[in-house]
Design a protein around this nucleic acid. Structure first.
Lengths: 184, 184
DNA sequence: TACCGAATGATACATCATTGCATTAACGGG
DNA sequence: CCCGTTAATGCAATGATGTATCATTCGGTA
């Protein structure tokens, strides 16, 4: 991790990088974990799937399928059919290297592997869009308890949140401080 | 779905009826609560909003916006524009008399009011589609705890589940074993 | 009356996701 | 090596969900 990181500036649209973060290295390690996951599950990490994964992992955001499509088209000049991206995403979901955020119809890459069987929940920053995952064992246990208490046999649980990530939460609220909001 | 079928069991116009359940009365009381909720919040329960609410409340399912649209069109012969339904639903959401299920892009009516500030979670039956709500205080508390533990300032939490409702969970499973099509 | 704002209507478009079928790549057995 | 099977991809169309924009109506009210 060289502190003199050559920062990838090509994604001019993202307000990424509060805090410094070796993005290249982080994507590479994600890719390495993906290879392992695919290997373990006996699914093939094809070039297309890898490209899609890199696109998703290369943003810490949750990306919609069409956003992935757009970004890949911008890079390669060739626009895939939506179904191709969806199929690739299906494989990535099956391998467990990306997850879906139901409340956003979008997908994000695990950047920390889920060791063991522990369930996690996704937290989406409303300001910088970054997605982080936190352990959700207690949450899912509580959902199970609440369901069982009324006789409901829970088979699938969804839990996700949005708000401000640690970095954004501690930021001074510039707009308010400078009074620059034009309309109340 | 076969359009030829006279009886579209799942989405035909009414009676559901696991156990006995006075549907008319239940919709009326939902409507009464809706009136109160709209009054309390200073929002108007217009005829259109009421029609949409009746459609949603008249099913214990979660309905998609287009499903509401279809049902209303079948009844009145006039097909609204999608936006009209979405606007009505927005008002119903604002009044708190319907909720959205993120994982289904669908909406359902509260059939038991949320007394006090208590948060609830929706549980959707995979067999009969009925939605029930259960208290989710522990769940949301756990989400808050998990978020706070990593410095995330949670402002919106989504938790929902699917599985088998009490009625369906206790049904003999023979039907599944024999591959028979079953009805709620 | 004239005006204002909220609600609705109407058209179009944007976004999310799948179906069906044709084509190509990958791989193992003759 | 060829062939057959299966997985993966390409391609066109369509379904499903949701929004932007602008026009119109309607109820209150100054």
């Amino acid at each position: 991790m060289t502190p003199s990181a050559k920062v990838d500036q090509q994604h001019s649209m993202e307000p990424r990088d509060h805090g410094q973060h070796d993005h290249g290295a982080c994507v590479l390690s994600a890719l390495e974990r993906a290879r392992t996951a695919f290997g373990d599950k006996g699914i093939k990490l094809t070039p297309l799937r890898q490209r899609v994964f890199e696109e998703i992992a290369g943003s810490h955001d949750a990306l919609g399928a069409y956003e992935v499509l757009d970004r890949m088209a911008r890079k390669s000049g060739e626009r895939l059919a939506p179904i191709s991206v969806y199929r690739a995403i299906d494989a990535l979901l099956a391998a467990g290297v990306v997850h879906r955020i139901e409340s956003k119809n979008a997908f994000f890459a695990c950047h920390a592997p889920h060791q063991g069987q522990e369930r996690h929940i996704a937290l989406v920053c409303e300001r910088c869009q970054t997605v982080i995952e936190v352990s959700g064992a207690d949450i899912f246990a509580a959902m199970e308890t609440a369901s069982a208490a009324c006789g409901f046999k829970l088979s699938l649980a969804v839990a996700e949140g949005s708000g401000l990530c640690p970095a954004c939460a501690t930021l001074p609220t510039i707009a308010q401080a400078t009074g620059m909001v034009t309309q109340p």
